[in-house]
Nucleic acid binder design. Structure first.
Lengths: 199, 199
DNA sequence: CCTACCGATCGGTAGG
DNA sequence: CCTACCGATCGGTAGG
């Protein structure tokens, strides 16, 4: 909201994070050097160590700063709709938009999986999933139009389908999406809605 | 089928591929050195270059040798069932088993995405997806019990849900799967089946 | 925050 | 002349 008052040191720290973020996305963690990060941030190599104890701490901080939850939770909260059908449709479009606007989210998670052997992934999920559940839960439970399936399974399937849809969009032009994207999105939504709504 | 007759050189080449595969899974591409690959294969560093022109060519060869399609297509082909419901259930269980037995498949693809910026991913998908479609197509189309949704969307959603389920299994113990795994698998299957079957 | 470096290791290649 | 390697070292770069 309000403009934060930041010291020069904080500005430097943030430019390190932003430079590192861009480089990690393009080259991965091990493929990115501390010298590249320093150059991107406009400082000398040694200067980095005034802000971070090492390369891994930079990655941790980037993971926190660019965490999907910051982008996606407000989108889901903003989702409204008279029926669950409308609500799901709005949430789905909001999530796709959020993913498209910040395509680096998934890559950071892939880096965590590939180059850190999923070391911090359980913590990450434990931090994220309850937040999503607490937002989705009240709305869904106030309705009686869902099949008798645990809300957790429903949310998990929703996320899985959105990720798959997102992958399909990244692969435009391949056989994987031989139909218009809007149409593919609609089909995925139909399968999900038929899957969760009571007759 | 029959036992291949392989020269000593071919055996060396294959041990390089296997060693590189294991190391890539644990450390990623840039995190793995040619010296580690050589040690894993039981030869000297220089010996590698009699079989591969460089590190990237090794990764390409590993991607080909351990391609998911080799494992998953026979599983789907072996899937039978009097009804689509049975068929889907068998295919789902077969795919989960295949993924669990070869957990490296997904990681190789993540390495491709993260460390090579998805350079060869479209080609990979174009090679794989049509094969799956040609196997699934005839069976599904011989039935009239599906909703009016393109087969391509159905297959894509199926793959998305299986991947999500697989991720959930890797995250056992976290909030993400607060129910028994068999139950979570069943719930995912219910959503999919309700989503695609005609009333 | 910089310059000047360190111990070690990187991917790749030399001659034999 | 080929293959399948070796011990040693190349020019550069890694994180700190």
């Amino acid at each position: 909201m309000g403009r934060r008052i930041v010291s020069k040191g904080e500005l430097t720290r943030e430019s390190i994070l932003e430079g590192a973020y861009q480089l990690f996305l393009q080259q991965g963690y091990h493929g990115t050097s501390m010298r590249q990060i320093a150059a991107e941030a406009g400082i000398a190599l040694g200067g980095i160590y005034n802000h971070f104890s090492g390369k891994e701490e930079i990655f941790t901080a980037v993971l926190e700063a660019y965490h999907p939850i910051h982008e996606i939770v407000p989108v889901i909260q903003a989702s409204e709709g008279a029926t669950i059908e409308e609500y799901v449709r709005n949430a789905a479009m909001g999530m796709m938009t959020a993913l498209e606007r910040q395509p680096g989210f998934l890559n950071l998670i892939f880096i965590e999986i590939v180059e850190f052997n999923s070391l911090h992934l359980p913590d990450l999920v434990d931090m994220t999933f309850p937040k999503v559940m607490s937002i989705v839960g009240p709305f869904a439970e106030s309705q009686n139009k869902l099949k008798d399936i645990p809300l957790q399974s429903i949310v998990r399937s929703f996320i899985g389908l959105m990720f798959m849809q997102y992958f399909a969009e990244k692969l435009v032009g391949s056989q994987f999406v031989a139909m218009p994207l809007e149409e593919a999105f609609e089909q995925t939504l139909q399968i999900f809605l038929h899957g969760i709504l009571a007759e």
